[in-house]
Amino acid sequence: MNVVPEKLTAKDFATDQEVRWCPGCGDYAILRGVQNALALIGAKKENTVFVSGIGCAARFPYYVATYGFHTIHGRAPAVATGVKLANPELDVWVVGGDGDMLSIGGNHLMHVVRRNVDLQLLILNNEIYGLTKGQYSPTSRAGTKSPSTPMGSVEQPVSALVYALGSNARFIARSIDSLQKHMPEVLKRAHAHKGTSVVEILQNCIVYNDDVFADITERSIASDRQLQCEHGKPLLFGKDKNKGLRMNTQTLSLETVTVGENGVTEADVIVHDEKNRVLATLLAALEPPMPVALGVIYCDPAPSYETGVMAQVDAAKAKAPNPQLNGLLRAGYTWTRS
């Protein structure tokens, strides 16, 4: 008799470990969002693996009741690649912060993305180093004052999603820690995509970088600064959904227009096409005062890495079924001494 598996809830994905993030940290909300997503997609605990590097965000695996591997700084994508190649049936999630993924781990991020290893890669971006007590990070805005930049950072930040696209990502999406309904849906899409799904989640660090995303999340301006990207629908935003993005063909850039003003109609507003790489690049780079693109910005699947690797292994095995090591050792030139 088949036992019908009980449908797991978000709570089933919580561990008995005391969560050790600062009170009010955005990571709590993201953890909840991920646990909700796991329930939503019907994840199997035993087949799910969370791999992380080092940093506040990288504590994530300890709090998800699946398999988990808390590795070393920056290297989670490389470890996860090994896990996925060893067992392509596993559902692999990589979680890290902006320092972990884009500074020390920037190289591995590039390569896991271009190889298109089938995993979900969550970048919890708070634009600061939290665990080491508040230094500026590779996503910190120019001028950021921190213990290591008391006069302000003189570096330009990197955009996680533009970098991912530059590395040939086939799926990029963005959400915000506080968007509890939005995030699980985005993660569900990321999970459904076969290949590397890069999801940037804007995360508030209440201790070292509080309100750094206020220009996106502040209630009074949120509707003007958050653009929900939905495939096949016009890129409209604003409280009355009457603002939209139009392509300025002179400057090859996106501009904000208001439908009904200056002769602008909804027909002038770009319809989101998540397979359009050029559009995705423009959308991913938007920042205040323009609205920030959320949701699935780009999704255009291509064969995943482990599929290709295993196809070659299978082809070699099909060509030489039941190979014997003794035969290999005796192949080529041999001679016998009596």
């Binding site: 590795t71 470890v79 896990v83």
Partner: peptide
């Protein structure tokens, strides 16, 4: 790291 990941997963 990939080798460690593979060992973790049983290779």
């Amino acid at each position: 790291c990939s080798a460690v990941g593979a060992s973790y997963a049983g290779m």
